[in-house]
């Protein structure tokens, strides 16, 4: 079995990288895959609390790469999905504790056992970012529909491509469909025209996601959550399924255009 290592990155902090990692990892496990999510944000460990596993962390990523324990001693198994594991970051070490060669060796090793190795990158474009992307075969850039996040995403896309990670894919997180409809927020078309990359999907702004995060249960477990449904769709796309393109692409018919002009087409953005 040979798995794939995917890095989740963004440049800008606070756009939802860790939440995306937790939910895509969980969603891929729900699809029957063996998944390990790795937190490479050394010193600022968070993926464990997002996934509700913080109380069970014993060893960490740095212990593993320094040979103080075996990978399986540090990996925390998810309570809901036995095919899902977390490899937590070290909390009391700094960014220089992890080297690219160490992470590469670890990920190549884990690919023998897991279908998906998902690496959560730290924010920024410095050492931590460079190490996080070094082991990846594919890259996903998380962005919010606002100027700072998009500008940073463009920078990161350039760095990823220069590092040999061609064609990174985009997840647009925290989309307010109503604001997009009014023209108060950039939509998928706007962002694609600026960044020229493929969009994996859009995740709506969702109160249920905040509640899920408070509880430490990834929102893909909440069947009523629109954001959870969006993450499940994105996971299906990563998995190679043909999932219908997001709504913002599909507005092409003449009547649709007329409806959008006169403002009666209220459904157009409803299933982002």
């Amino acid at each position: 079995m040979t798995g794939t290592t995917i890095v989740i990155t963004s440049g800008k902090g606070g756009v939802g990288k860790t939440t995306t990692t937790a939910n895509l990892g969980t969603a891929l496990a729900m699809r029957g895959h063996r998944v390990v999510v790795i937190d490479t944000d050394i010193g600022l460990r968070n993926l464990d609390v997002i996934m509700g596993m913080e109380s069970r962390v014993v060893f960490d990523l740095i212990d593993v790469v320094e040979g103080k324990c075996k990978p399986h001693q540090a990996m925390v198994r998810d309570r809901h999905r036995y095919e899902l594991y977390l490899l937590p970051a070290a909390q009391s070490r700094d960014k220089d504790s992890l080297h690219a060669e160490q992470l590469q060796a670890l990920c190549r090793n884990l690919e023998n056992e897991f279908d998906y190795v998902i690496v959560d990158s730290p924010a920024g474009i410095d050492q931590g970012f460079r190490v996080a992307i070094s082991a990846a075969r594919e890259a996903i850039v998380v962005v919010n529909p606002e100027v700072a996040a998009i500008r940073d995403a463009d920078k990161v896309i350039g760095l990823l491509e220069a590092a040999g990670l061609r064609r990174p894919k985009l997840i647009i997180n925290r989309v307010n469909a109503e604001m997009v409809r009014r023209g108060d927020m950039m939509g998928q078309d706007d962002i694609v025209s600026l960044l020229s990359v493929e969009v994996l999907g859009m995740v709506p702004m969702d109160e249920r996601l905040i509640i899920a995060t408070n509880r430490g249960v990834p929102v893909v477990h909440d069947r009523k959550a629109p954001s959870g449904a969006a993450f499940l769709k994105i996971a299906a796309r990563i998995d190679g399924d043909e999932v219908p393109a997001p709504a913002l692409d599909s507005r092409s018919g003449l009547m649709d255009r007329v409806r959008s002009l006169i403002g009666t087409d209220r459904s157009a953005y409803s299933h982002v």
Binding site: V147, V180, G187, D190, L194
Partner: peptide
């Protein structure tokens, strides 16, 4: 407003 964002970006 989104056109401002798009143009500036």
């Amino acid at each position: 407003p989104k056109h401002d964002a798009r143009r500036r970006l």
